[in-house]
Design a binder for these strands. Structure first.
Length: 269
DNA sequence: ACGAGCGCCTGTCGGC
DNA sequence: TGCCGACAGGCGCTCG
């Protein structure tokens, strides 16, 4: 589930509800979700800190506390929810923070792939990320330079968080369809014009995802609406809404990849 | 530099 | 109905 728009949606919700609360205590229920510090040091270090605000970098959710950052990556099935007091444990809860005012912040993660860090050094966690796609520093000219500096298939390249931060499988398929680029096209074969269209598609799809409060599919993530706007993801066998051609699904880098074989013509080697 | 394969986990779904 | 394998939004690792 959680790609940039979903994490942004969760961030906005938590910021509206939990800013300036104090962390009274915590329950670490699955210590392998914690990367740093050790499970023994985590609770005492966090206890007593105040929530100053929330941020996001790529798919990472940043909770700024008085002395540290508590950083979450939700991976496949993680979620952050506020539970009203009295806070009852539920299945797959991995971390519970008990806050002043009575509510809890709960990290719930069915598949246990999610991770969190408590650190005063953001760079330690975020240092290898590529540009933030919705920020002003990410320009069409920058994207063109990034693409031509590499020799990679577009789909795996856009999924590479060190190349660009925040895209996952769903939004990448949607972006490539909007930009009319084949997922296997090589990055250094895009023209300047192609690159500008790709930049535009990245921005538009992510912004529409945020406006829709993210994508809700299956049992993971609730409340979003973007699944009703998908053009290719999950639509294999159905007609492309641009040209009527049947959407196909292939595997690229072990990931399900959906595209329109007519709209998205491959520029091969 | 790049891509393939695998491991980490649980839940769901389709085929038999 | 029940069992079993395939598959799922991510990412870090090894290997060639």
């Amino acid at each position: 589930m959680p790609e940039l728009p979903e994490v942004e949606t969760i961030k906005r919700f938590l910021a509206s509800r939990l800013t300036s609360r104090q962390i009274l205590s915590s329950d670490l229920l699955w210590s392998r979700s914690l990367v740093t510090p050790t499970a023994v040091d985590f609770g005492p270090r966090l206890q007593g800190q105040t929530v100053q605000g929330f941020g996001r970098r790529g798919k990472y959710l940043l909770m700024q506390c008085s002395l540290d950052w508590l950083i979450f990556h939700l991976r496949m099935s993680g979620d952050l929810v506020i539970r009203q007091s009295p806070c009852q444990l539920e299945k797959h809860d991995r971390l519970v923070l008990y806050l002043s005012g009575g509510d809890c912040l709960v990290f719930n993660d069915t598949r246990k792939f999610g991770r969190f860090w408590l650190t005063d050094d953001l760079q330690q966690v975020l240092g290898k990320l590529g540009p933030e796609p919705l920020e002003a520093a990410f320009t069409p000219a920058l994207l063109f330079a990034m693409l031509t500096a590499r020799h990679r298939q577009l789909k795996p390249l856009l999924l590479d968080q060190g190349f660009l931060a925040g895209l996952g499988n769903i939004y990448t398929d949607e972006i490539l369809h909007k930009a009319r680029q084949h997922p296997l096209s090589l990055s250094d074969r895009l023209s300047l014009d192609d690159s500008e269209h790709l930049w535009q598609a990245i921005r538009e799809v992510l912004q529409q995802g945020i406006l829709s409060n993210g994508t809700s599919i299956d049992w993971v993530y609730r409340g979003g609406d973007f699944q009703n706007h998908l053009q290719v993801y999950g639509r294999e066998g159905q007609a492309c809404q641009i040209c009527g051609t049947i959407i196909v699904k292939i595997r690229v880098g072990q990931r399900g990849t959906h595209f329109c074989p007519l709209c998205q013509i491959e520029k091969d080697g």
